[in-house]
């Protein structure tokens, strides 16, 4: 029997699950981003620090994200549009889930590709029609997975990854959002 290795340290995750079961306070995380307006609709958002396991934590390095709008929006296109970042979040979260669940179930992955499409009626954000919402009308993710597993097992991986996905939950369920002026 060969050892399955998708590069996910499942044991550490299972240990954390066991440890946090009786320590809900340590499970409270705060993720942070700080954003600066550049010019036009271009902004830069930086992420490095977060809080979790009862103390301040830090990523290895700071990551900087540029957000802008494309030329068809009469903008300079210094980065992807903000709503496209939601696609980045969803795809990467579901992919991480597929790898973790596969590791936990002893399934060796060879490749995991996905395409994410968000249907967006921009009449909402432009204020053309108040019946049109600002956000996505529909989001579709399509996975193509090559793994040592049956089609049914692969479908179960993808289903389970949605069940445990932070971004899938954040997109499919309402969340209270407060925006204040300091």
């Amino acid at each position: 029997m060969t050892t399955v290795d998708n590069g996910v340290n499942v044991q550490a995750l299972l240990d954390a699950r066991g440890a946090l079961k009786d320590a809900p306070d340590a499970a409270q995380f705060t993720w942070r981003a700080t954003s600066t307006w550049r010019n036009g609709v271009h902004s830069t958002t930086r992420i490095q620090n977060f809080f979790g396991l009862g103390q301040e934590q830090s990523h290895k390095t700071e990551t900087v994200f540029d957000a802008d709008h494309p030329a068809v929006f009469a903008a300079e296109d210094n980065g992807i549009t903000p709503i496209e970042y939601l696609l980045v979040g969803l795809a990467s979260c579901l992919t991480a889930g597929v790898a973790s669940v596969a590791q936990n179930r002893g399934i060796q992955l060879r490749s995991v590709e996905s395409t994410v499409e968000g249907q967006h009626d921009i009449r909402g954000i432009l204020g053309v029609d108040s019946d049109v919402r600002n956000g996505f009308n529909d989001v579709k993710v399509t996975f193509t997975i090559d793994a040592d597993a049956s089609q049914q097992e692969i479908e179960a991986l993808v289903a389970q990854s949605q069940k445990r996905s932070a971004v899938f939950d954040a997109l499919t369920n309402p969340t209270n959002v407060t925006v204040a002026v300091a």
């Binding site: 049914q152 499919t172 369920n173 309402p174």
Partner: peptide, 30 residues
Amino acid sequence: GRLAGLRDGRALFSGGLRNVVALADLKLDR
């Protein structure tokens, strides 16, 4: 979908209905 909240007299349902249905179908097949 699952009742996810109530806001201004509106019931809000999860957009994850397709996945809970897929999970149940897969579990039945197993």
